[in-house]
Design a binder for these strands. Structure first.
Lengths: 227, 227
DNA sequence: CTCAAAGTTGACGAATATTCATTTTCTTGC
DNA sequence: GCAAGAAAATGAATATTCGTCAACTTTGAG
């Protein structure tokens, strides 16, 4: 009769012992890193301290995360996961889309910028992109769709399109909150997106300026967790 | 009346003291690295040991070389510098270009492959590219010229063309000496070159196969030391 | 020209991130 | 159960970074 799972050295179950240990280690590492990074800042947190707090060897961390940056990003994701839920819950009651947008950005930045390193990583966060995307979605997606329709992307890889749109939205958001642009100016999302895709010059400008046909927005794109 | 330069604390001369010290450090580092790497292999040579032998601090090495790899490459260059002269001197007396070629490759590989890391770096060596280029020059340059004429490169940057041709020659040389291709089979230099330029598929194949107009070889390209 | 202050550049090495050969833990096939 | 093999953990060894300091250069006033 197997108890919880503390002392049964021969019970692989559906999920083997290795898988379980790995999940524990990964979670412990993120938790340890989150605590230490929150306390001392991302840069001052050392990999050794994190490993010790998570009760694994120094080298083991690198079986789970390629680098300190990747670990920090995982921590950011974990922070954002919670935040995203809260944002959605609250903004559910809002009526003005502009307010939804403003609230989301404000909240994210207030939280994420505890440490400058995290702000820097923000554009790479899948979770926060996801959350913001749910607020901004239809608007941004229409612009992206038009860019694809204009023929600059081969939209064969939905994951790429998805990722690009997330990055574009985050980028624009940051630009706005940094005060470089006012929120109601017409932000050239397409140009930004093209730039992020590495397409610059070579007709990108004209393309971005081309008037947009009024395609219907694509609600059907995968909005769930990252691929 | 300034003596040699041992005890004159206020004589900057044409070349300042800093510049002199830097040259000494750089040379000492390469010499130390060359000795240690030759003795124990590139991988087993530690940066600390090299720094100590060169009589500088551990971190100082990184003021001169971005990484251990770059230092190893500098050592390879220094090895090849000597080798290149010897090759040229000897092959001066050869009459058959094929012999020149064979001798050059053979000699380079015999020396450079002391350590596998160096063989791996060979294609990045400017000096050996230069040396081999002088042997193979006219032949390889003609092929390159045709590739340019075929319109795949904008040949606006001579340095790029030069670099590419060096890489192509080294790459082909290695392929031959590694026994993957016999020396007298028609090696697809252009295809290799295009691949190294990052141009693959997308018409590169057809281009490589296109029959070559018999352009005159360009002897006037800069063959001196790397730009 | 001489000197001192301010500014620049490079050296330093302790601190830290990352790698890698070895050891431990788990899985698989009998 | 057990042995062979695979996967993961380990931490000592190593590469690399970074704040600090010293050497040198420049500036400007006497």
């Amino acid at each position: 009769m197997p108890e919880t799972d503390t002392a049964s050295p021969t019970a692989p179950k559906a999920e083997g012992r290795v898988a379980r240990r790995q999940r524990r280690n990964r979670a412990a590492l993120i938790a340890a890193a989150r605590a230490i990074m929150a306390e001392k800042g991302v840069d001052a947190a050392t990999m050794l301290e994190i490993a010790e707090r998570a009760d694994v060897g120094a080298g083991t961390v690198y079986n789970y995360f390629k680098s300190k940056d990747e670990l920090a990003l995982a921590v950011l994701e974990s922070l954002m996961q919670e935040l995203a839920m809260r944002i959605e819950t609250v903004t559910d009651t809002f009526e003005d889309p502009a307010q939804v947008y403003a609230f989301g950005i404000r909240t994210v930045l207030d939280t994420a910028t505890t440490d400058p390193r995290w702000q820097q990583m923000l554009p790479r966060s899948e979770v926060i992109a996801d959350a913001l995307f749910r607020c901004m979605g239809p608007f941004a997606i229409r612009d992206l769709t038009n860019a694809v329709a204009a023929g600059r992307f081969r939209a064969t890889d939905p994951a790429l399109v998805w990722r690009l749109s997330c990055h574009a939205i985050i980028g624009v958001s940051l630009a706005i909150t940094e005060g470089r642009q006012s929120a109601d100016s017409k932000v050239p999302i397409i140009a930004r997106l093209l730039a992020m895709a590495g397409i610059e010059g070579d007709g990108a400008e004209e393309l971005a300026a081309r008037p947009l046909p009024d395609l219907p927005s694509i609600q059907a794109l995968p909005v769930g967790s990252a691929p």
